[in-house]
Design a protein around this nucleic acid. Structure first.
Lengths: 198, 198
DNA sequence: ACGGAACTGGGACGGCCGTCCCAGTTCGTC
DNA sequence: GACGAACTGGGACGGCCGTCCCAGTTCCGT
């Protein structure tokens, strides 16, 4: 391996780690598998990261950012609030279909963080970021549709994240686009009814 | 360990395994941890099960049955369809709060099965069972409320399972009862609107 | 150009893993 | 009571794991 600073190595290892997790799961993401994917030697891993767990922590934090950005740009749809939200779900479903392993990896990272008490805050932070993103999107959607939310937007955003999660997991199990779209429709329906026309 | 037939040992090991998974996750459920929990010797495990994976397969299949039964009996609620469904969700939330580790274990088992292609059908079977149960409950609820489903019940059931999953995962992350109830309300709202009054 | 800091590769360590083996014990059956 | 089948405990196997060590190499500031 040509010479590389620890600062450059860290993101390279995280990219490699994400590919390994997508392919083989967290349990398959051994330090050896990760450095092999990155084409580095084992020592480089522990030179760049204190431990495997610290590595996974940083990977999780890093990757959530990209996760939300992948769904952007929000679809510009004419129609009422319900249609705008449904279009957002459908865009997410496209993203899911395009790279299922990535979403599966995110779910695994969440569960891994949920497992140990000291890592729980990491899962919370991950989901707070999802919710923030959802909140932003919902605010924008309500503005476009000229309505306002009856409940606090943060609450609506929480519901949106929950529904997205459930739809994701069920699609990963059944790979049933029709069922996923039906759920997306129902979810959009429920969410849009949490708003009043102004 | 006093003498025990392999036929008796299998359920005992599965009980122990479920406890270990709830406590330490699948990765913590080593053959040694499981037999320690069951108070057996290591050889007994491989006398009763061909391999650890075969054990996990049987555990998954066994435990899904109990999962659905834990939510029974369905609440007998007076009110329209929406109220009946919401009461069902709230009952499930109680179950979740009472034993979060169990639900977390179920999610882990699902993801573990999703990981490898030859085990994927196991996850599908698990979710088909959930859906069957949901279908039964939804049919009963519609009868009680005197309405009929506009879409096929199986489709509505799929949406219900997806929403439940999402609510579960988000509650496991945030432990936020208020948010979970808000999501349950929204979900009940969406589901009830998939029915027409007769 | 040289010295110290940054980085590299390879090998080693102890530990846990799933699985297997096998000599012993206990049981049901005749 | 004998005999074969069912079951048990303990130890062993090779393999992968995370982490560490260290002698060597490369870089950069002076």
């Amino acid at each position: 391996m040509s010479r590389m600073s620890a600062a450059e190595r860290r993101p390279a290892l995280i990219e490699a780690g994400l590919r390994v997790i997508a392919r083989a799961g967290i349990s398959g993401a051994s330090t050896r598998a990760i450095v092999a994917e990155a084409g580095m030697s084992l020592a480089s891993f522990h030179y760049a990261f204190e431990s495997r767990e610290a590595f996974l922590d940083e990977l999780t934090a890093t990757v959530v950012v990209r996760e939300t950005q992948a769904v952007l740009p929000l679809p510009e749809v004419d129609g009422d609030l319900r249609d705008v939200i449904e279009a957002g779900f459908l865009r997410y479903l496209e993203h899911l279909r395009a790279d299922p392993a990535h979403e599966q990896a995110m779910l695994e990272l969440t569960q891994h963080a949920l497992r140990e008490p000291e890592r729980h805050p990491l899962a919370v932070a991950q989901y707070r970021r999802y919710a923030d993103f959802a909140e932003e999107a919902l605010t924008l959607a309500a503005e476009r549709a000229g309505v306002s939310w009856r409940s606090p937007v943060s609450e609506v955003a929480g519901v949106l994240v929950a529904f997205s999660d459930g739809i994701t997991l069920n699609w990963l199990v059944h790979r049933d686009d029709h069922a996923a779209r039906a759920a997306a429709r129902a979810a959009a329906d429920a969410l849009s009814r949490m708003a009043d026309s102004q």
